[in-house]
Amino acid sequence: MVRHALLQLKPQKGRIHRNLEHLQRALLALRDEDVDVAVVPEAYPTGYFLQGGVRELALEATELEDRLAGWHAEHYQKPLDLVIGFYERDGGSYYNTAAYLELGGRGLVHRHRKIFLPTYGVFDEERFLDRGHELTSFTTRFGRAAMLICEDFWHTVTATIAALQGAEIIYVPSASPARGFGGRAPANVERWETLARAVSGEHGLYVALASLVGSEAGKLMSGGSLIAGPEGEVLARAPEFEEAVLIADVDPGRIPPVRYDNPMLADLKAGLPLIFPELRKVVEEL
């Protein structure tokens, strides 16, 4: 069993130091829970909507790692893995990035730079950020994992690629402003659950969604973090709009029997070469 904590936190806009302290306090409060992997939402250290301010507030990956590693060394005897979304500066380029940090161990294990930058409606990411160009799964202390950030996950082809690469869990830091108030929950929250259940059920893997909360000048980040299991079931769900910590155990041992009974991923591997020429044609015609 791999104990996960999804930290559905509310940052103060631009207050990186305070926000990291808030995260650290939340993690220390969980010490008795024996957490293996903590997952923090998209853009948590700064808040999501920065416009041009991303240039002032983006961090180098090593800078973020150093801040958290120093703190970890002071307070922990054993490693803690942390998935965290942040705005990354790399030379003159800026990315919406998720880092997988093995604190007290290998340090920065992997980083995923968001590929699908929403630039429509209330969103304006591509004006201020560069696109990532890679999607690769990676090995953690607990198995194979992948990270997708927010809209990356709304295109299910990305999760399919991660599954084909062997991912047993997909971490999804997100920041999703609530919209569509016609039902019991905001429409975007319902969409997230539908997607997470569909993806986890199709590929027989876990999905851990950590979603930001807080009002950013009227844009209400919706929360509703959840963890979905390999049969497409929601194992745990956080409330909407308010800060919460969601704790759930991930059992990699469940994946092989589930995939045996529902061999969609194996079937995909068998059938993909048959349909790939069509996919290539579509891509070539873009």
């Binding site: 806009k13 301010g53 950013e216 000048a217």
Partner: peptide, 11 residues
């Protein structure tokens, strides 16, 4: 040109 949201701060 200079675009910042109304709740923008820095440390």
């Amino acid at each position: 040109f200079y675009l910042r949201p109304l709740d923008f701060h820095t440390d």
